[in-house]
Simulated assay, not measured.
Amino acid sequence: MARYTGPKAKISRKFGEPVMGPSKALQKKNYGPGQHGRGRRSKKSEYALQLQEKQKVKYTYGMLEKQFARFFHLAAVRPGQTGTNLIQLCESRLDNLVYRLGIAPTRRAARQLVSHKHIVVDGEVLNIPSYLVKPGQLIGVREKSKAMDSILESLSLNSASKYGWLEYDAKEMTGKFISYPERELVPENFNDQAVVELYNK
């Protein structure tokens, strides 16, 4: 189960955005990481900008290269725009939906909850963070895990009501994935067209 395990703040500083969750490092050091972080040239080539957008999507959803390439292939063979399909597939990952529902405060925490068998899909325990949830399926907290402090705290601070493609039942601690979100409704700042252009070279 491969994932990025390096420093989160370094990645956020690299893109100038909190791609791996909130980071105080961006406020303290608003320049790139490394020895030459302050002095790097500001103008980037077209390829560099396209690669940066791909890396941003990868890090945001917690994927490594091989898995991301598989997602891109799935998006390319589906009807519709490849870039939109790619973001919709990423949004339908189980760990991402657990995060969107407010069950976990970050995608990393959501991945851990799924891996440790605290999450059920349609009543069945699933421990595969990259599982692609289909519209109409129900995601919930396992009965034995409903009293976990980390889950209760996260639910008290976060709300799924701000996402129109999700329904959440607070009493049952279950959420329904209604439909794939429209591209403009996904709050993250991605240039998915640049990712498509990179792969089509």
Rank of each mutant, 00 (worst) to 15 (best):
G175V: 04
I151P: 09
P33Y: 07
K56V: 05
R40L: 14
Q55A: 03
V114Q: 05
T84A: 12
K28Y: 00
Q35L: 14
S161G: 03
V121R: 08
K8E: 15
G140H: 03
K146P: 10
K56T: 06
E184Y: 06
F190R: 07
K10R: 14
S42W: 00
V57N: 04
L101N: 00
Q137D: 08
S115M: 13
G140N: 03
K176D: 10
P33L: 08
H118S: 14
P187A: 10
K117W: 08
A147C: 06
E46R: 12
E167W: 02
M20E: 12
K144W: 11
G140E: 01
V120G: 03
Y199Q: 09
Y99D: 00
E182M: 03
F15A: 01
Y163D: 05
K134V: 14
N200Q: 15
Q50E: 12
G102T: 03
Q35K: 14
R78P: 04
F15N: 01
W165A: 02
A2H: 12
Q137S: 13
Q193D: 09
P181L: 04
T5G: 12
S161N: 04
S161Y: 01
V186I: 15
L152I: 12
R3H: 11
G34T: 05
P129Y: 05
V141N: 06
A147I: 14
Y168D: 00
L26A: 02
T84C: 03
A109Y: 06
K66A: 15
Q81E: 10
G34S: 07
I151T: 10
K176M: 14
Q81V: 03
Q55I: 01
A69L: 11
G175E: 01
L166I: 04
I151V: 14
V196E: 06
K134D: 14
S45Y: 02
K29M: 02
D192W: 05
E143C: 02
L113Q: 11
T106L: 07
I119Y: 07
K201F: 13
K10E: 08
A110Y: 06
G16Y: 02
F71Y: 15
A9H: 10
G83D: 06
D192L: 11
P33E: 08
N30P: 07
C90D: 04
L74D: 15
P135A: 06
K10H: 12
K43E: 12
M148V: 12
I139V: 13
A25D: 14
K56I: 03
A104Q: 02
S12P: 04
N158C: 10
G136R: 09
F15C: 03
R111Q: 12
V133Q: 09
G6H: 09
A194W: 07
S145D: 13
K29A: 00
L126R: 15
H73G: 12
P7M: 01
N158T: 06
Y47W: 11
L166E: 04
V196I: 13
V114C: 06
I128K: 13
Q137I: 13
Y131S: 12
E184H: 10
C90W: 02
G140W: 03
A48P: 07
R108E: 14
G140K: 01
L64D: 10
L166G: 08
K24E: 03
R142H: 15
